[in-house]
Amino acid sequence: MNALLTSAVAGLTAGGTYALLGVCAVFTYRLVAVVNFTGAAIGTAGTFVLIALYEAGFPLWPSVLAGIAAGTVVGVAIGFIMTRWFGEASASTKAAVTVALLVGIIAIGLRLTGGQHPHNMPELFPGSAFRMAGVEVTIASVLTIGLAALFTILADLFLNNTKVGLNLRALADRPMAAELLGIRVQMLSLLVWGMTGAFTTFALMIIAPQRSPNFMTLSLLVVPALAAALVGLFRSFWRTLAGGIGLGLVEGMASSVDSVSQYRSAIPFLVVLAVLLWSQREARWDEAR
């Protein structure tokens, strides 16, 4: 029992990261109507800037800041492509574009970082925060979950309680209409992309030491992130938060059971399958067509 609890708690850091990435995905979807497959790749780019600077001997914390700045820039760059050329495109075209961009980013990333070549990723927040029922809870897990919760609260407040948020929600599908209302859509969209870029970069920096830090593995963390977002049906931030943390816990537990631990990366797939089958109980037609 205690072993299971220990491994579940060990999954908390991953859970917090999934949750944060998932909440960012929902945020992006609700504000700029893009299901973003490059989410984790943007953060990965920033993380590797940190690694490169750190390996070159720069001090840690300035490198972290530079990494976050780089993630923000990459986010804004992708946002620029999406708003400049695909502002009025359909949701599935936009998703297809981010898939294509993901292919390109991973290829460039692998090239620049030397493929599977092992890197020295500093642990930003080593040590444990507190003990709970005899199990150490790490600072990293408290931090990722805290950050995810903070982002959830902010996103919820912004969308429900500010005028700009309300307008954007109503008009996410029709940027042109928002433009006519006097909202600076382009500016705001880029802000959304930059902000999610910064947050995901920070989350990935925390989880990177736990994973094999190669560019592709980290970029593909988008899979559990989107699974979490699906748990929230791309609408509810709180459910996405819960979905992400839950996913991490289940993965943690699975890793302690020998017979299934090898297959634990199949868990997001099972979650996605279950959520989709459950959410489409009632027939619905594709929107307005």
Binding site: S92, L220, V223, L226, A266, F269, L270, V272
Partner: peptide, 16 residues
């Protein structure tokens, strides 16, 4: 449900 969900299902299946 339309295309985007399929993208997520197929990508997660490919990972698995």
């Amino acid at each position: 449900l339309r295309g985007i969900n399929l993208a997520i299902v197929t990508l997660s299946f490919a990972t698995a």
